[in-house]
């Protein structure tokens, strides 16, 4: 059986700007693949190439072994764009009915289940919904057809943490049922939580692709330890993986590459009042790639 998504030498130029540059990517069926990159790295352009909104300058795209220019290919794909635009006066119900009709009809029971799960009132016009509720409409339309492949552009953006969690669980369930999930993100944690593999994009080029476990091992993170007494930076400086330590007053900030295990063990010997971990963005997490 062919892979779910294959791109070979995929390149897209807009005039003199190369937005995607020789992308070779293979996403297997049934896996959750995280497509990481800061804003402007080319994630949305790649996804638009996968959805036949844009046509490659060179190279090729295959989804489920066929070209996405074929309607039959797109029939198997659920898609959530980065910015969802629906006629403001449509209610969610009308929008879902129309989008479902274009796909031969959504299973109504499935739509109802999704609406309940995301606590979305389908009777209100799209234009009156909060950005989070609009996002929910987008998620429901992408998932309602139970597609074999889900291509989601920053799916959790605009959702509150509870709904982010709900969505990520739902994606895991769908993957367990055999669906392939391709999701882009500009932050590591959500991808780290559910993806089995990830690719990292910088300036349109894939700088790394591999198992999420290996990615985690390379990621830098910063934690602040609030101590009961004066902090001493020297206690942490020689721990393996620690790349920077700074102490101000009672707080010691430690930047670590890979596991934080050693730092926590050292901290356990001190009287720690509070631990604050910072959600680092990709540029900070992967200095080597984005410097």
């Amino acid at each position: 059986m062919s892979a779910a998504i294959v791109t070979s030498g995929l390149t897209k130029r807009f005039g003199r700007v190369t937005a995607v540059d020789g992308l070779d990517l293979q996403v297997e069926r049934g896996e959750i693949f995280g497509f990481l990159g800061p804003n402007g790295a080319g994630k949305t352009t790649t996804i638009r190439l996968l959805m036949d909104i844009l046509r490659p300058t060179s190279g090729s795209v295959e989804v489920l072994g066929a070209s996405p220019t074929q309607p039959a290919t797109r029939a198997c794909v659920g898609f959530l764009p980065a910015d969802l635009h629906i006629e403001p006066r449509y209610t969610a119900r009308e929008a879902l009915a129309f989008l479902g009709a274009l796909r031969g009809g959504f299973d109504e029971a499935e739509v109802r289940r999704l609406l309940e799960r995301f606590d979305l009132d389908p009777g209100r016009p799209f234009g009156e919904l909060s950005s989070g509720n609009r996002r929910k409409v987008g998620v429901v339309q992408a998932l309602a057809g139970k597609p074999d492949v889900l291509i989601l552009d920053e799916p959790t953006s605009g959702l509150d943490p509870l709904l982010q969690h709900e969505l990520l669980s739902l994606l895991q369930e769908r993957a367990a049922e055999g669906a392939t999930v391709f999701l882009s993100s500009h932050v590591l944690p959500e991808v780290e939580r559910i993806a089995s593999r990830a690719g990292v994009l910088r300036d349109g080029r894939l700088v790394w692709v591999g198992r999420i476990h290996d990615l985690r091992a390379r990621a830098r993170q910063r934690i602040d330890l609030h101590l009961d007494g004066r902090a001493d930076a020297e206690l942490f400086r020689d721990i393996p993986g620690v790349s920077a330590v700074e102490a101000t007053g009672n707080v010691v900030s430690v930047t670590i590459e890979g596991p934080v295990d050693g730092v926590l063990k050292q901290a356990a010997q001190l009287s720690v009042q509070r631990v604050v971990s910072h959600e680092t963005d990709l540029e900070d997490a992967f200095l080597d790639w984005y410097r």
Partner: peptide
């Protein structure tokens, strides 16, 4: 942008 979900439909 209202055409986006229609062109990505089958």
């Amino acid at each position: 942008g209202t055409l986006e979900l229609a062109v990505t439909a089958p």
